[in-house]
Simulated assay, not measured.
Amino acid sequence: MTNPFLWYWAHGAEPESYSVVDVSTREAAIAAARADDAHVHGFTIIEANKKVPTTNIFDADNVLEQYEEHNEESWGEDGSMIHAESAQKAELEKMLADALWVWMGKHGLHGHNYCFGETRNEEYFPAERTVQ
């Protein structure tokens, strides 16, 4: 499995946002910040992974209830014959989540993740003084 953590940098201490450029090593993040003259005023680097949106939002009981209610004319006097076990409901929830993810990908709706899911190894580099 690949490491989901990448390095990012930003101007100043305690930045609210980091550069869009992500790199795989601490040294590359430092080099990128220095190449942008961030060392003149100070910069922060951080190792982070991007937050991945969850599609696990379906409740099988609710989905099945909605299905039954929208098809009442199909069941007859005894009502629906759908009586799923908990494992079957869990399977339905996963299948619906997977289908949503595929549909979003097909139509380019995944969006761009800007937020970090987890962070570690944050380090501030103060401004470098120049000798006049």
Rank of each mutant, 00 (worst) to 15 (best):
I45P: 07
T44M: 05
A48D: 08
E68D: 13
H70K: 06
A48K: 03
A60R: 00
Q66N: 09
T55L: 15
A33V: 09
Y67V: 00
F58D: 05
E69G: 01
I30T: 05
Y67C: 11
A29Y: 05
D61N: 13
Q66D: 12
A60W: 00
F43I: 05
V40C: 12
T54A: 13
N49C: 05
I57M: 11
T55D: 15
H41M: 11
E27I: 04
A38W: 10
N49F: 01
E68L: 08
A29I: 13
N56G: 00
V52K: 03
V63A: 02
V63P: 00
I57V: 15
D61V: 04
V63T: 02
E65I: 10
H70P: 00
D61L: 09
E47C: 07
N49T: 03
H39G: 02
I46M: 10
D36I: 05
H70N: 14
A33G: 11
N62D: 07
T54N: 08
A35C: 15
R34A: 14
E69W: 07
H70W: 05
I46C: 05
I45R: 11
I30P: 04
E27Q: 06
D61G: 07
K50F: 10
N56R: 02
H39T: 07
V63Y: 02
T55Q: 12
D36N: 09
D37C: 05
A48E: 10
D59V: 06
A35M: 12
A31K: 11
F58P: 04
L64A: 00
T54F: 07
F58M: 10
T44C: 00
E69A: 12
H41D: 13
H39A: 12
I45T: 08
T54C: 13
A31M: 13
A48R: 00
F43N: 01
R26F: 00
N56V: 06
Y67T: 08
H70V: 04
K50N: 14
I30G: 03
A60Y: 03
N49Y: 03
N56K: 10
T54M: 12
D36F: 14
V63Q: 04
E69I: 04
N62I: 12
A31R: 08
G42Y: 07
A28F: 03
F43L: 13
R26I: 01
H41L: 13
Q66W: 13
I57E: 14
N62S: 14
D61H: 06
H39L: 01
T55G: 06
